Amino acid sequence: MTKLGERLSPDRVKLGVNCTLWWNDDFPSIDAGISFGQAVSEMALAGFQGCSIGHKYPSDPAVLKAALDLRGLQVSEPWTSTYFTIGRMYQKTVDSFEETLAHIRALGGTELVVAEFGASSHLLPIDVFANRPVFTDAQWDALTSGLETLGKIAQSAGMRLSYHHHMGTGVMTRAEVDRLMASTSPELVSLLLDTAHLAFAGDDPLDLARAYADRIGHVHLKSIRPEVVSRVRDEGLSFQRAVELGVFTVPGDGAIDFRPILEVLADADYRGWLVVEAEQDPNIANPLEYAKRARAYLTDVLGW
């Protein structure tokens, strides 16, 4: 075990992997026909302790928990989209969040991840940069007050809420993350650090980690391929096309150096999930191969 691994030891952090290596939940056409059973078996085979929830997973929490328990896996997070910045969606957003919370509690999970998708460009076949929303002050107020409401609901259930900044949304850049953090209570809203989404947006994930080290509640470890980022910007491509072209990849591949980011987390005594991601086309990038590559990289860095 390295000195870094001693500070980010197995009793402090858990290593998870996102099912977006095996299929894409945003774009169902990005799929190689891999079943739920094969995917979670490969996650365990690659050496991970947990995983996110995807659309191919059993909806019955008892069935899902049994399948994960069989493979020694836990749920690292669910995903809930929020829509506080658009009309007549407040109560539907809260109701959806409470349904997700109940589901994750039944699975023994403690983490909740949200992102505001009101007017997002990331699901549409349009330029992901040029057409993303820019929130008005009123929309910012609606978003931050709504997130604090969700944070209180999570807190009352003994769970933690982390906000995921995301390409194509109104909270995409460092400046927007800064505004969100400044406008919400640290006790109610933590930050999900997604290294690749911030780098894709044009900002530095290491600087973000340093700025909010004591507020990071969840981490997605994902790298980027800069040549694809440049093409997306230059040609005005959609988020889906960026994924298909391989804009994302796993730690140990691509342009992001994760060692200093992990050092920052260790210095802040981070405790929680480190979740490997790579929204790649499984027909091109073999999921098990890339999962094992990422796990080998983390073993080299952490020593376990």
Rank of each mutant, 00 (worst) to 15 (best):
L298D: 14
K14Y: 02
H218E: 01
E42C: 03
L124T: 10
R271M: 03
T184Y: 03
H164E: 12
R71Y: 12
M167Q: 03
E148T: 04
A66N: 12
G168P: 15
I30Y: 01
D281K: 03
L221A: 13
L298M: 12
A157E: 03
A285G: 03
D137M: 14
D25P: 09
S162K: 03
S145C: 03
A268T: 03
M159G: 02
E279M: 05
V94A: 02
E176S: 10
F200W: 10
A255I: 09
T195E: 08
A138H: 15
G50D: 11
I104M: 06
G252K: 04
P78Y: 00
V264L: 06
F27M: 04
P260S: 00
W140V: 04
D178Y: 05
P260T: 08
T100K: 03
P226E: 01
D257H: 13
D194S: 01
I284K: 07
L107G: 11
A199V: 13
D267E: 11
G254C: 05
A46R: 09
V17T: 14
G272H: 02
V40R: 11
L245H: 07
L101Q: 00
L15H: 10
F97L: 06
T110K: 12
W79E: 11
L245T: 06
V75K: 13
L101H: 00
Y297T: 10
S76Q: 12
L112Q: 04
L15V: 12
P61W: 02
L193G: 11
F239S: 15
Y297G: 09
L206N: 14
E263M: 10
N18Q: 11
T249C: 14
T20Q: 10
H164A: 11
